[in-house]
Write a protein that binds this DNA or RNA. Structure first.
Length: 416
RNA sequence: GGAGGGUUACCCGAGUGGCCAAAGGGAGCAGACUGUAAAUCUGCCGGCUAUGCCUUCGAUGGUUCGAAUCCAUCACCCUCCA
């Protein structure tokens, strides 16, 4: 195995990271691997608690992929045992614990999605049940004897809860220890995690020398902002990507939907996404930024990102198709292919437009429908309706459209 | 165990007998401008074929011509004292 020069590797792997403990050590170890030809062992663990992942989760995986592309080995560690303990990080309360079956099922869907990013040939897929299940009570005590309570209380959420006199159960202290023990068992060179994991990762670093191993380096990746993030004073600002804030792009999402959401990202924020998720090299990104500064259309740049992401999670043909469909339906004025059909009953001589919109589920109520018409947000057969009292005639078929930004279509046929 | 404060629409929050379908802000939606970006401006933001009617201010019951507003009971939350 021949590796790229160390400074080049450093530039790639440190892109976008939040914490790096310790930079010099990482350089040294990369140099060592460069000489010996031995790849670094790069660990990242996850608790398979949620089934569907979004781009925010992909940031960490992308970072691992960068290590892989440089020739190193990724260790994807399934926290089969620790998931049952429940990591209290970021929680103000105790987290619910899962059964082993739940965990296994979730792990399966998780890894399927993770391998859209990771290179399976350079990935070790492991479960920490392998070694934690085998720990004897004596070994467990020994592990616990390597960490003090006050050290645990340094962790923000524990400290806060202690100060607030909220309960901290003893098994919760076990979580960071077990996670750290995983690093011991795997003898890894570096562990990656989200910034909220910093404490846990450092426990691993502390533990390793106590077991006679060289301490791992620790690197944390940022939490990706949602698709509604803005650029404020040169910095990306916004809520983190999450399902509940509805500002996420799911890894399993439909190509067209992915494309649309990416095109809606703020022009200046797209580079944040590139930095954290693109497989493009630093040089390529720098070139792209220059082109942008020189006046290249931000839409073209966003489309590049959309293409890369859709190709990764679906395939290239789907990416092309999505781009074309997007141009046709949204940029142009075409009608999408899958428009719902409704047949509506009618009591009077005609069916009130507001009622029709409501029954076709384009609006939430007749009042809402009436409002939409009054505000000029409704088209019937591609012509804007201005009369809020308009009646649709029996026996005819109409194409209804509401809104433009989030346009919705439906065909309705009024029963004769 | 004692004392006090609170619960208002998606969220925050004003309102303490009629002028309250309920101020203001945020979110959201529509329109203008655009590139379905951002920013900005305008409007909307409980339901109902509607100058009116119906349902809503933690729940239930009451006082009143009239209740988000007063009274009683219940539920939940918070603060202080023990």
């Amino acid at each position: 195995m021949s590796f790229a020069p160390v400074d080049e590797q450093m530039a790639t792997v440190t892109r976008g990271v939040v914490d790096l403990v310790v930079r010099g050590e990482l350089e040294a170890r990369l140099r060592e691997s460069h000489t010996s030809g031995k790849p670094l062992r790069v660990k990242a663990g996850f608790d398979p608690t949620r089934p569907d992942l979004h781009l925010g989760h992909a940031v960490l995986l992308q970072k691992m992929r960068q290590f892989q592309d440089l020739g190193h080995t990724a260790i994807l560690l399934v926290g089969e045992f620790t998931a049952m303990v429940g990591d209290p990080t970021g929680q103000n309360d105790l987290r619910p614990r899962l059964s082993r079956d739940d965990v296994r099922a979730a792990a399966k869907t998780y890894t399927e999605q993770a391998f859209k990013i990771l290179d399976p040939a350079r990935t070790e897929l492991r479960s920490n049940a392998e070694w934690i299940d085998k720990l004897t009570p004596g070994e467990m005590v020994e592990l616990m004897a390597k960490m003090t309570v006050s050290r645990m209380l340094e962790r923000n959420d524990f400290g806060q809860r202690f100060a607030d006199e909220k309960p901290i159960y003893q098994h919760e202290f076990l979580y960071p220890l077990l996670q750290g023990y995983d690093s011991v068992a795997l003898d890894c060179d570096i562990e990656l995690g989200g910034t909220d994991q910093l404490f846990n990762l450092l426990v691993g670093r502390d533990l390793m020398p106590k077991y006679g191993l060289r301490p791992q380096m620790v690197m944390t990746t940022p939490i990706l902002e949602g698709t509604d993030a803005k650029l404020v004073n040169g910095k990306v600002a916004g809520k983190k990507m999450s399902k509940s804030a509805d500002n996420y792009i799911g890894l399993m999402e439909e190509p067209l939907s992915m494309h649309r959401k990416i095109m809606q990202i703020d022009d200046d924020v797209i580079f944040r996404y590139f930095e954290l998720l693109s497989a493009r090299t630093n040089a390529e990104l720098a070139a792209l930024k220059e082109e942008r500064a020189a006046g290249k259309s931000p839409m073209v740049i966003k489309a590049l990102f959309a293409r890369e992401i859709i190709t990764r999670f679906h395939d290239e043909a789907k990416a092309t198709e999505a781009a074309a469909e997007f141009a046709r339906v949204y940029s142009g004025d075409a009608i999408p292919e899958d428009v719902a059909e409704h047949t509506l009953a009618c009591e009077g001589p005609t069916l009130w437009i507001a009622k029709a919109l409501s029954e076709a589920k384009l609006v939430s109520s007749t009042s809402d429908g009436k409002r939409m018409v009054e505000q000029g947000g409704v088209e019937v057969d591609q012509v804007r309706v201005t009369d809020a009292k308009l009646g649709l005639e029996r026996g005819k078929r109409y194409l209804l459209r509401v809104g433009s930004k989030n346009r919705k279509f439906a065909y309705v046929t009024i029963k004769p």
